[in-house]
Write a protein that binds this DNA or RNA. Structure first.
Lengths: 163, 163
DNA sequence: GGATAAAATGTATAAATTTGCATTTCAATT
DNA sequence: AATTGAAATGCAAATTTATACATTTTATCC
């Protein structure tokens, strides 16, 4: 086995350095680098490397390397000791979050960082956050979202917790 | 037809809460929740949501939600020029403008300066502006207003100033 | 070196995903 | 209500990706 590791490296390098949207395409690039192989092997290589294929902003799809992942958000948040959130309320189709004085913008910042589909935007004052949900998003959608993506932010009275 | 937004959120919720490895599988889960659709539509939904499919640790593949920092964002920025406006969105009858960090209040200030009838008021945070239209003002009224009165603020590569 | 097991690969095909096109639904405007 | 343009969807076909199975290569013993 003289080429495999080298080849795997090259695959990573190519994916890191350019937008590639199919295995065939990548295969051709590898050929140019002198690697002879079939698409089947490439498929296995990508699986081995945990390369994911994700929709691109422009249109189409690109391969991405598996760097640190989304769990980081939660970890970071939990690491903050949190939370400063006092209450969560709904009115006029929007959510109003009350926080300890001065805590609003940091919490809003973290919520923004979720990049959650459900949330159209947030505006923070000193101790209040106005959270504008997308149309169609219900109160419990939001609560679920916050529970899932920001564990610890919302404390259940005691008892039930699904999901 | 149940709401598309609702469906998109359910998809996110499902992907967040369990390991799903094919669209067919996800499709069945959605059916159980009462969503009727074809796999083609699901494919488009996943693309819209930027859900990626990545090799799993065990074996097989799982869908993962897009984590926040995709380098793409920076590309977006540069493409949008100097204005600092990132996106214009509508929810709950209001417009939510996302801006570069720190740019919100200056842009809001400029918008306020228009003294436009259509705009009842604005509130700016750090990177988000909440724009409250007067009753009866439509989405496209606002877009038109901004295009006319603030040329350059909104650039349209054909209507893609959405999320 | 030869025997043997494990790993890697190719071939052919199955499985999964994306997409062009036609149709329907939705939303804004008159 | 009627009109119109855009968005969403289904269908069917094309494209892309994964994998079962057979074969070859590599590594590991003796």
């Amino acid at each position: 086995m003289k080429n495999r590791n080298e080849r795997l490296m090259e695959i990573r390098r190519l994916i890191a350095s350019m937008n590639i949207s199919s295995q065939e395409e990548l295969l051709k690039l590898l050929e140019k680098q002198g690697y002879e192989m079939t698409q089947a092997t490439l498929s296995r290589d990508l699986k081995y490397l945990k390369v994911a294929k994700m929709p691109d902003d422009n249109a189409g799809y690109v391969y991405i390397l598996p760097d640190k992942e989304q769990v980081v958000e939660e970890t970071e948040f939990s690491r903050r000791g949190l939370s400063g959130l006092i209450s969560l309320d709904f009115a006029q189709g929007m959510a109003i979050l009350r926080t300890l004085p001065g805590h609003a913008s940091s919490i809003a910042y973290t919520i923004d960082g979720l990049d959650a589909y459900e949330i159209a935007g947030t505006i923070a004052g000193d101790d209040t956050i106005l959270l504008i949900p997308r149309d169609g998003v219900t109160r419990s959608d939001l609560v679920n979202l916050l529970k899932i993506r920001m564990p610890g932010l919302i404390q259940e009275p005691s008892g039930s917790l699904k999901n």
